[in-house]
């Protein structure tokens, strides 16, 4: 099935507009968040994707979070990725553990890394982060504190011994540290 045929078939089955992106293998089905579980059931039942590979998310900045599920059809030998967008202000999605039980731990990890709540999850607690960890590390606004605490050796200009030697020139910030963060002057 080509990308367009798949998009047409999925749109007919789910009743909402489904687009398929062909940029990278596997084909990525974009569905709206309110049909998330139906789309997953369709992918598993009709398209035969019974092997659950992974579920994760990425931070799409202004467009919210994008949650992606990758699955594989063992009999028909094709991969498929299912993706949806959820708003940043209210990151909630229904759980996929009814469709693929393997999504249990993946949703726990996505919850702790991004702060996305999965409604209906049997035990949504952090999986990998230590107890008492504050924050959601894989969000783009999460700053790696070690990069702020340690002075960047490359911040010095050639011919400079200590920080503060080059005045009047824009200080180079280490990669990954925004302008508003920094050691106290």
């Amino acid at each position: 099935m080509t990308a367009d045929e798949l998009a047409a078939a999925a749109t007919t089955a789910l009743g909402v507009a489904v687009t398929v992106e062909d940029a990278y293998p596997p084909l990525t089905l974009d569905v709206p968040a309110d049909r998330w579980v139906d789309a997953a059931r369709y992918v598993r039942a009709e398209l035969g994707c019974d092997f659950f590979d992974w579920l994760s998310a990425y931070d799409a900045l202004d467009e919210g979070f994008a949650v992606v599920v990758h699955s594989y059809a063992l009999e028909r030998h094709h991969h498929l990725a299912l993706r949806t967008r959820i708003p940043r202000e209210d990151p909630r999605l229904p759980t996929l553990t009814e469709v693929w039980p393997g999504a249990n731990w993946h949703e726990r990890e996505t919850f702790e890394m991004f702060g996305i709540f999965f409604d209906g999850h049997p035990r949504l607690v952090p999986l990998l982060l230590p107890d008492g960890f504050v924050g959601h590390p894989l969000r783009k606004e999460f700053i790696l504190a070690a990069r702020v605490a340690k002075p960047w050796p490359g911040a010095k200009e050639p011919g400079e011994s200590e920080e503060g030697g080059a005045t009047g020139r824009r200080r180079m910030r280490p990669p990954g540290v925004p302008e508003t963060w920094g050691p106290p002057e």
Binding site: P137, F142, L144, A145, A146, K150
Partner: peptide
């Protein structure tokens, strides 16, 4: 991994 959020340095 010295700059990671969950690694003991």
């Amino acid at each position: 991994y010295w700059d990671s959020y969950c690694v003991t340095k």
